[in-house]
Design a protein around this nucleic acid. Structure first.
Lengths: 201, 201
DNA sequence: CTAGTTCTGTTCTGGCCGGTACAGAACCCT
DNA sequence: AGGGTTCTGTACCGGCCAGAACAGAACTAG
């Protein structure tokens, strides 16, 4: 009884909701939350406003869906990196992933979660808050992974998981800013390598 | 024979142009270029639109003036740091300055040049470009200083000034993002210290 | 076929955006 | 005093914003 995601009755949707979300994600990625107007979004999605509202609710909910997709797609490196066997390998994979993701040729430069809403007017506040949470979550998962590494003896006893996680996140954010400024993948990977020079041995 | 900055004749300006610019800078700092509306700006400046247009030209020129003031005021650490005697001291002073500036209690969190316009709509493009230039300039001056350090034997022969400068800039940007996410000065200084662990000896 | 449901395109809204026109106020110089 | 100049306040502009109303189209279930 009930709980169908998609209704079996009524006029069928005339567009691919997944593809439309992908396009919307790219627009948010390039222009940020407030910088992306409904006209920009629906234009890229190939639908009109009414269809967008029917399918996603409103602009903010569309953004949340797009962010979710971002986390499962382009930013999945942040999760996959945690599976590396050592803390060093995790950090390296994380930074390598951030370099690749922020300099893809088929997507905007930079990181959606950084560009999305660092500063904004009042309308952008909800987006800003959800992005702050998103970034903090990513840091917390990294910290947890490093804590495990200490427990396993992979990191020295006196290493601070929180400190290392914050450091790696910070470098990742910095890489995103540099990518948005137009730096290429080679320069950024060099930065990532430099950042690992001080890693505990 | 002309060239007067301020006219000697006509009704005198009814507000302190310097103080108004200071207020405008803070609004741009907190909300970014596009996020700061003329209503926000003139409200904080204590004047109305007409006066702002008469004094500064338009929103973009006001932003440029505010950015200039930012460089000479809150962000002057970037220049002062270059005067430190060693490359390590320069890097440390630069990061320390970025931590302090992005976590001042009397100013918005974060860095104006990062928050101002990372991503934006079409209207924000000029601001975005001027900020990219600003950030690149800061990196170039750091690189030049490190190059001198190599010449002086202060840094090892095989050290890459460009690489080190980009790394320090990247960490500075990352710190700015973290500050905007609400991190406090102690956490950020710890990050800065961590970032220096890999510095060439 | 009809009724019910859902999607689509057009049209409209009130509000805010950056920017301007204009009249009057406040000053200097003669 | 009077003219020239510059600043200030009000009122206004077209344009875009996010969002809603509504009619009709396209489907399923009976």
């Amino acid at each position: 009884m009930g709980g169908f995601r998609k209704a079996a009755v009524g006029r069928p949707r005339g567009f691919d909701i997944d593809e439309a979300l992908e396009r919307a994600m790219q627009v948010f990625w390039a222009r940020g939350y407030e910088g992306a107007s409904l006209t920009d979004l629906t234009g890229a999605m190939g639908i009109n406003k009414t269809s967008m509202y029917a399918a996603f609710g409103n602009k903010e909910q569309l953004f949340r869906k797009a962010l979710q997709r971002y986390g499962q797609g382009p930013a999945s490196y942040a999760t996959h990196a945690l599976a590396e066997p050592t803390a060093r390998a995790v950090a390296e994979a994380f930074l390598r992933g951030s370099v690749r993701t922020t300099t893809r040729s088929d997507a905007p430069s930079g990181c959606l979660t950084v560009q999305g809403a660092l500063a904004s007017g009042d309308d952008g506040r909800p987006a800003r808050e959800v992005l702050v949470d998103w970034r903090n979550d990513a840091g917390a998962r990294l910290e947890e992974r490093f804590r495990r590494a200490v427990d396993e003896g992979d990191l020295p006893r006196d290493a601070s998981p929180a400190r290392l996680a914050r450091y790696i996140m910070t470098v990742g954010f910095g890489i995103a800013v540099q990518a948005a400024s137009g730096r290429g993948p080679d320069e950024l990977q060099e930065i990532a390598d430099t950042a690992m020079l001080g890693w505990p041995r």
